[in-house]
Design a protein around this nucleic acid. Structure first.
Lengths: 193, 193
DNA sequence: GTCTATAGAAGGATAGAC
DNA sequence: GTCTATCCTTCTATAGAC
């Protein structure tokens, strides 16, 4: 899906490739550690070419992250539709793991990067998703242990795919293992109806 | 031992306070997002004063992180001393949670910061601790699910204390909840002998 | 132990040619 | 849509006075 649709490009690849390059560098070096110069160099263009597509670095960062907000909303919607909490939690875990496996870098940058954290604090309309998860999925008045467990789950999902022991597994195995971890943390017995 | 800054430290209160300030800013803004200027400003001194204590930024970062390596080694030692795997895992979980609750910022910066990740890749003598955990605590030939669970646990421990729902709890409650999360992830039934 | 001053490199961002 | 060239700011790091 993300692939090399542009193939070997002598010049002028456009936004899609820029997105892809930026995300890769953000994930490996951190947002603050990735200069627009580095992105331009990686693509074989100049900084000015990057500024043609995005007004600022923050603009680029938010643009790269945007898809994950849409996904998170969709996941939260699907989960919130269930009546019982175990069902909501399981739907949520499954959804998040799917997001991670298909879209790991984006999620890791969103949850883990200090630059992004500050950026979203400014755009507070984008930073309410954690509140929503607690309120609608876990339940607003949930006990602290369950809230803690949800937090550990969400944070815990960010690293696994890039580290040695897990990185080598195929996608379906990763998916199954991560879902199992989520069910353990949140104590979901099995797939509830 | 790397001999980064070590040797003598007969200085005044300057170093301790510098350590503390740097760690706080590293944790909140990321290492790359924290300039030596910002550290100096926060302490009410100049950059040059910081350079009197540390030869470079990397030197400062490694010095700030150093205590956590000592702690991790001690925790791994205590855990590895147990014969049964459940006992090793439980000792490890308890130790890590203790480290987190008492020393959260340092651990979070160590595990989560991209700058630190690159820095440790260079000093590869300091980055072997994850390997050690897998080999000695989980067991070298452990199944991928257990290895994944350990990774999720370690990563999951980095966020909780600073986020709203958990940050407000008292230390003992945090400790208990985090230990419970660890036991769930790693499926440790109870405190084994 | 801390300061002023500054070198030298790198980063974000803009203007205007093609 | 991409380029060259440039501006201004900030960063790491050093030199030398007090």
């Amino acid at each position: 899906m993300t692939g090399v649709t542009q193939g070997v490009r002598p010049r002028g690849a456009g936004r899609a490739q820029l997105h892809e390059t930026a995300l890769r560098l953000f994930a490996s070096d951190g947002v603050e550690g990735t200069s627009l110069q580095a992105i331009a160099d990686d693509m074989g263009v100049t900084k000015a070419a990057v500024y043609y597509h995005y007004r600022s670095k923050d603009d680029l960062v938010l643009s790269v992250l945007a898809p994950v907000f849409t996904e998170l909303d969709a996941i939260a919607d699907r989960a919130a539709a269930h009546r019982s909490r175990p069902a909501r939690l399981d739907e949520f875990v499954t959804g998040i793991v799917g997001l991670i496996v298909d879209n790991h870098s984006r999620f890791a940058v969103l949850v883990g990067d200090p630059y992004v954290e500050r950026l979203l604090a400014a755009h507070h309309d984008l930073s309410g998703w954690w509140r929503r998860i607690v309120d609608e999925i876990v339940g607003a008045g949930a006990d602290p242990l369950t809230q803690t467990a949800m937090l550990v789950f969400l944070t815990g999902m960010t690293a696994p795919l890039i580290k040695p022991p897990v990185a080598g597994l195929d996608a379906e195995t990763q998916r199954a293992h991560l879902i199992e971890c989520g069910r353990r943390i949140l104590q979901i017995r099995r797939r509830p109806a």
